[in-house]
Simulated scan of single mutants.
Amino acid sequence: MMPRAELIKDIIADLRIATSFVTIVPVASAKPAGDGAIARATWALPAAGLLVGIAGAASYSLASKLGLAPGVAALLALATTTLVTGALHEDGLADTADGFGGGRTRERKLEIMRDSRIGAYGVCALILSFGLRWSALAAIGRPSAVTLALIAAHAAARAGVPAFMSLVAPARPDGLSASAGAPPGRSVAASFALGTLALTLALGPGKALAGLILLSLAGLVLARLAIRQIGGQTGDILGAFEQACEILILLVAASFVHAGG
């Protein structure tokens, strides 16, 4: 059995790797990113997402205390989370939309996805993503409820990423996803457990169940689409997956607010 001190050291190292992987927070990794370290650390992605959600919630709460309307506060919260992540997931969503919509062959789709320029499909995808998330947060309104929704969304949206990486092979031998490697089963299970816990504590069992069902369906649909379009997943696909999950969770939270749940 691993000594407790060594176990704690590894947990902290994984948290630092996961945080540096999905945010721009300058957290130096305590162990090398090679040799499968990133794949092993994917269990901590929900924890990294928790930090992003807290940052967005703090921005929303501050804006509300200053007397700003829910719509303005929601926009500032989204700006904060986008800044903290360096628009990593939004970039993936835009590239995926451009590649799938603008390419005719697998090779052309992958080429478009690697192009730093954004096209019409990418612009439309980003407008829809920001629009849906903004509408959901503004509809929720209350800062305390928005805080819980953002925490649930950002933690759980990343919880399925290890499973997606494990079940769907990389579409090409290079790139972010391929270099990270396939997460081990224990990382997949731990990430899923943390995401489920965040959903349940933040939104309650009923809403958490609805969210998990929708996230699973989103993962299955995107996985099938990615395999058919480009033969697997890439870092851009993972970003698009996170965005879809984030949107769904926020919509679930908003719909239950208006249903009186």
Rank of each mutant, 00 (worst) to 15 (best):
P3I: 09
G211A: 06
F21K: 07
I11P: 06
A18N: 04
E107W: 05
A63K: 02
L201G: 01
R133G: 12
L225Y: 04
I140P: 03
I38N: 10
A244E: 03
F256L: 14
V52M: 08
S116H: 14
L93H: 03
T81H: 05
Q233K: 02
P173Q: 14
R104A: 13
I227L: 13
T147W: 14
G204E: 13
I38H: 06
D115L: 12
A208C: 05
L215C: 13
E6R: 13
T82G: 15
A87N: 14
L215F: 02
V84I: 13
G71L: 08
P26M: 13
P184C: 08
R172A: 15
S135V: 09
T196V: 12
G211L: 11
A138Q: 09
A223R: 11
S116K: 10
A190G: 05
G86F: 10
L167Q: 08
L128F: 11
S177L: 15
L150Q: 02
L212R: 02
L83E: 11
S20Q: 12
E6Q: 15
S59E: 00
V52A: 06
L251G: 04
R104L: 11
K65G: 09
R106H: 07
T81S: 10
F164I: 09
T23P: 01
G175T: 08
P26S: 11
I151S: 05
L222I: 05
G204F: 08
A240M: 10
T105P: 06
A73I: 00
A157K: 02
P26Q: 12
A30P: 01
I112W: 08
E246K: 13
H258E: 15
T81D: 09
T80R: 08
V22H: 03
R40T: 00
R228T: 00
G56I: 03
G185Y: 09
G71M: 06
E246I: 06
A198F: 10
A218P: 00
L203Q: 05
Q229M: 10
E111P: 03
V27L: 15
S61L: 13
E107G: 02
M2C: 06
A37H: 05
R172Q: 14
R16C: 09
L199Y: 11
V221M: 13
L78N: 02
L194T: 00
T96R: 02
D98P: 01
G71W: 04
R228K: 04
A259E: 14
T23I: 03
E6S: 13
S59V: 00
L45A: 04
K109Q: 07
P170T: 03
Y60T: 00
G160N: 10
E242S: 11
G195E: 03
W134R: 01
G185L: 14
S129R: 07
L75N: 01
A48P: 01
I249D: 11
C124N: 07
L51F: 10
A55N: 06
G122D: 09
G86T: 05
G86V: 04
G232E: 12
I54L: 15
L199H: 12
V221Y: 08
L197R: 00
A18L: 12
